[in-house]
């Protein structure tokens, strides 16, 4: 009975970890400008972070061959030739972390030319860290509740 109650409590805690709305400090949306240099086969900077609701303006500067930039989930993209800076503007209205991908074949390692866009804090990271802690905790509890039965034998 006591064990079942504990299991129920742990399950409840897990659900809270997964779905509870975390207090995210919301800042008024601003326009953020980034200058991303693209070369074979990397973006520099390779990771950019913004707050949800911000207007993101990316100036893509290519330094060797024709490169592109595609933002996963948002589905927006631009292409930049060396000497012709291209500008991509979009509103980051979906929170989470998204891949930036080169969408112009730029050589052998083209598929590995990726970057990352963070919109808001990485909630899934915190949630999964919390869940992992919970799992460790439950293993400890389980061991403890099992111990007397083992020693009784």
């Amino acid at each position: 009975m006591r064990f079942n109650f504990l299991l129920f409590l742990l399950g409840l805690a897990g659900l809270v970890m997964m779905f509870a709305p975390l207090p995210v400090q919301s800042s008024p949306p601003v326009e953020r400008e980034f200058r991303i240099e693209a070369s074979q086969y990397a973006y520099s900077p390779g990771e950019i972070s913004v707050n949800p609701g911000d207007t993101v303006k990316i100036h893509l500067v290519s330094t060797d061959v024709v490169h592109g930039l595609y933002v996963d989930e948002y589905g927006v993209s631009i292409t930049a030739d060396p000497g012709q800076t291209a500008t991509l503007t979009f509103v980051a209205d979906k929170p989470g972390s998204f891949r930036l991908r080169c969408n112009v074949t730029c050589g052998a390692m083209h598929p590995f030319m990726i970057g990352k866009l963070y919109v808001g804090p990485n909630l899934w990271f915190y949630r999964s860290a919390g869940l992992a802690a919970l799992v460790i905790l439950s293993i400890v509890f389980w061991k403890r509740s099992n111990q007397p039965t083992i020693t009784a034998n």
């Binding site: 500067v61 060797d64 030739d81 060396p82 000497g83 012709q84 800076t85």
Partner: peptide, 19 residues
């Protein structure tokens, strides 16, 4: 100019293009 020159001579003409 943008298509053929800017990569070396720079988009603003100051000789500081990407190459």
């Amino acid at each position: 100019y943008a298509q053929n020159c800017a990569a070396c001579h720079g988009e603003t003409g100051s000789g500081n293009g990407v190459f």
